[in-house]
């Protein structure tokens, strides 16, 4: 400790005070040894009277040989280098990266563990994941395994086009929903689960307009480029009578408590004028209702 303190002092005052400092240090060391001798004498005296004292380990002086070395170097150069005390002190820098990969439980596991229930010691393997085709070993030739492989193959063939889209090439997320939708429709569902049931009329109109627009441009471009596309699915044309409900009048438009007859309806009921009856009487009658449809 004494050596350390001396060093600090030297650094502060520079070389000018080198000589007196050294002598001071020598004298302090002499004093130390004298003190130790005195202590040893006291100790011996004490131990002779009472019982032996426990051995006191003297703190080892950090650098015993350093001063001599330094002295020889100091003569040669002005700069006395870095202080040795600082060299021997290893600077410990602890860098903790709190943002580094945290202990990430899977979502289900975290939910199960942090719920108010007693956590299960063995986590249940989710069925969805267990059904992955890869889980079945290839050399399993049993009937059940073959069936599973068949199913997996069928699904792969039917759904592989989903994986071709450039944006999403995984079987999770959007593609998984699309695959589920396809399977449900294959099982006989009339509507798609992806179709939104309730939405503002204007939105729906816009979507439908966009769809038809896209379809027509596609067809137009294909036609211009000479590509033959699949047949257009034409809308079902209304054929036959409009369903007018039970007990409703078979003619005209009933609104606001009044049956409104258009001129055409009246003409249809009245039939052609008598004056021209000789010429087109039968023809007019034959047309009757039917003619109305061709408008």
């Amino acid at each position: 400790m004494a050596a350390n303190l001396g060093k600090r002092k030297r650094q502060a005052t520079g070389e000018a005070t080198e000589k007196p400092r050294k002598s001071k240090r020598e004298s302090s060391e002499e004093l130390d040894s004298a003190l130790e001798d005195a202590q040893a004498i006291f100790r011996r005296h004490f131990e002779a009277q009472f019982k032996p004292l426990p051995e006191v380990k003297k703190a080892a002086k950090p650098i015993e040989a350093a001063p001599e070395e330094e002295e020889s170097q100091e003569d040669e150069s002005e700069w006395d280098g870095l202080s040795e005390v600082e060299e021997t002190e290893v600077q410990v820098v602890e860098h903790t990266d709190a943002q580094s990969r945290m202990a990430a439980m899977s979502k289900e596991e975290l939910k199960a563990f942090m719920s108010s229930k007693v956590p299960r010691s063995a986590p249940e393997v989710s069925l969805l994941r267990d059904k992955a085709g890869s889980a079945i070993p290839d050399d399993d030739d049993s009937e059940a395994a073959n069936l599973k492989k068949d199913l997996a193959l069928q699904r792969l063939l039917a759904e592989s086009h989903l994986l071709e889209s450039s944006s999403n090439t995984t079987v999770s997320g959007k593609n998984r929903h699309k695959a589920t939708d396809m399977r449900i429709q294959a099982l006989g569902s009339k509507t798609s689960i992806l179709k939104q049931e309730k939405m503002p009329m204007l939105h729906r109109k816009g979507i439908i307009a966009k769809q038809t627009d896209r379809e027509t441009t596609r067809r137009k471009e294909a036609k211009e480029n000479g590509i033959i596309l699949e047949k257009a699915k034409n809308d079902k044309k209304r054929d036959g009578k409009r369903d007018r409900g039970v007990g409703a009048p078979g003619v005209g438009k009933f609104s606001g408590g009044t049956l409104k007859l258009s001129k055409k309806d009246i003409f249809d009921i009245e039939g052609p004028k008598k004056s021209s009856a000789g010429r087109g009487g039968r023809g007019g009658k034959r047309g009757g209702r039917g003619r109305g449809k061709s408008f």
């Binding site: 903790t96 990266d97 202990a103 563990f113």
Partner: peptide, 27 residues
């Protein structure tokens, strides 16, 4: 809340060489 991450980090530093399957939830 960063205290959570710091506690978990040091605890894992000790335990990770012994067991690989360590997950600690932060609350």
């Amino acid at each position: 809340a960063s205290n959570n991450a710091r506690m978990i980090h040091t605890a894992r530093g000790v335990l990770n060489p012994l067991v690989s399957d360590i997950h600690v939830a932060a609350q």
